[in-house]
C-alpha cells in the first residue's frame, strides 16, 4: 500500500504539469456528470418546494411506460438511432481515408475547413436551410428532381422521408468534424508500415486495406462503443427544429417527448425518470458492446 502511495507521489512529482492541466476537466466531470447522479433520486420522488420531497417509488417510471404513445416514441428513438449508427458512423471514416489520400496539403486543408464548417451551425440555422432546400415549390433538391422529369417530393411532410432527412442532415453536419479524430489516428500510423507495404508491392487500395484501416481499428472500435452508449440520446435540437405537425408522431423521440410532457409542464421528476431510464439503457449498451468487442477483437474502451 505504502509502495503504491510512493509510486503515486513520484508520478505526481514527475508529471505534475499534466495533472494540473487535467484538473479542470476532472472538475467539470465531477460537478456536471458525477454529482448529478445523486440527484437522479428525484426520479423516485415527488419534488416539493418546501422540503422534504415525497418518496413515490417507481410511480414516474410507471407513468412513463403507461403513456399511450411511449412505446411509439421509444420505437422512433431506436429506429432513428439505428439508422444514424448504420448510415452515419462509417462516413467520417471514409472521409478521413479520402482526405489522407489527397496529396496537395493546401487542397486538403481547404477541404477540411469546408467540411468542418457545418459543425458550427446551430440546428435552427440548419433546419432553415433544410426546409428551404427541400421545399417542393422552389427547393434546390426538388428543382433537380423536376429536371429529371419527376414530381416534387414534399420531404418535410412525407412520413416516409422525414427520418432520412434527419439522417442526411446529421451526416452533413457532423461527418466532416467527426473525421478529425480518424484523420488524427491515421496521421499517427508509422510511415515505416507504409514503406514496408510498398516494398512488398502493395498499391494504394492495399495500403488502405492492410495498413490504414487496421491502424485506426482501435479508434473505430472505441468510438463505435461510445456511440452505442448514446443510442437513446438522438438529437433533441435536431428533431425539435425539423419537426412539424404532420411528421411529429414519426420522429418524436424520448427526449422531445419528455420535454413536452415533463419539462414544459414542470414535471421534473418525470423528466428525471426518463433521463435515468436512458442512462441505464446506455450503460447496459456500452458494457455489452465493450464486452463483445473485447471478445471479438481484443479491443474495448477500457
Amino acid at each position: 500500500m505504502n509502495q503504491k502511495f510512493e509510486n503515486l507521489q513520484q508520478s505526481f512529482r514527475r508529471w505534475w504539469p499534466f495533472y494540473v492541466m487535467l484538473a479542470p476537466g476532472l472538475l467539470f466531470y465531477l460537478v456536471y456528470h458525477y454529482l448529478p447522479i445523486w440527484e437522479a433520486r428525484l426520479a423516485f420522488q415527488d419534488v416539493r418546494i418546501i422540503p422534504p420531497n415525497i418518496w413515490v417509488g417507481t410511480k414516474h417510471f410507471v407513468a412513463l411506460a403507461s403513456s399511450p404513445v411511449f412505446l411509439q416514441v421509444l420505437m422512433n428513438t431506436i429506429v432513428i438511432s439505428a439508422m444514424k449508427l448504420v448510415f452515419i458512423f462509417p462516413v467520417p471514416i471514409l472521409v478521413a481515408l479520402l482526405l489522407n489520400e489527397v496529396r496537395s496539403a493546401n487542397y486538403r486543408k481547404f477541404v477540411q475547413s469546408v467540411i468542418y464548417l457545418p459543425h458550427y451551425l446551430s440546428w435552427v440555422v440548419i433546419a432553415g436551410i433544410t426546409v428551404a432546400t427541400l421545399s417542393p415549390s422552389d427547393g434546390a433538391v426538388n428543382e433537380v428532381i423536376g429536371l429529371m422529369g419527376f414530381d416534387p417530393i414534399p420531404f418535410m411532410t412525407d412520413t416516409g422521408s422525414i427520418r432520412w432527412v434527419l439522417v442526411f442532415s446529421e451526416m452533413w453536419r457532423s461527418a466532416g468534424w467527426d473525421s478529425l479524430i480518424y484523420f488524427a489516428a491515421i496521421v499517427g500510423i508509422s510511415q515505416e508500415l507504409y514503406e514496408a507495404a510498398e516494398m512488398d508491392g502493395a498499391g494504394r487500395w492495399q495500403k488502405i486495406w492492410f495498413v490504414t484501416i487496421p491502424g485506426i481499428a482501435p479508434t473505430i472500435a472505441t468510438l463505435f462503443i461510445l456511440n452505442v452508449g448514446l443510442f437513446l440520446s438522438q438529437g433533441f435540437d435536431q428533431v425539435i427544429n425539423l419537426s412539424n405537425d404532420v411528421v411529429r408522431s414519426h420522429i418524436d423521440i424520448v427526449d422531445t417527448y419528455v420535454y413536452r410532457i415533463g419539462l414544459q409542464t414542470g414535471e421534473f421528476a418525470l423528466a428525471t425518470a426518463a433521463g435515468l431510464f436512458k442512462g441505464v439503457i446506455g450503460m447496459i449498451l456500452i458494457i455489452s458492446a465493450h464486452t463483445i468487442s473485447k471478445r471479438l477483437t481484443g479491443k474495448g474502451v477500457w
Binding site: S67, P68, V69, D245, V246, V247
Partner: peptide, 20 residues
C-alpha cells in the same frame, strides 16, 4: 397531470390528420 400524455397524443393525432 395523469391525462397530460393523452392530451399530447390526441393533439398530435389531430394535427397529423388535419394536414392529411
Amino acid at each position: 397531470s395523469e391525462l397530460a400524455a393523452a392530451v399530447d397524443a390526441t393533439t398530435n393525432i389531430y394535427n397529423e390528420w388535419a394536414f392529411k
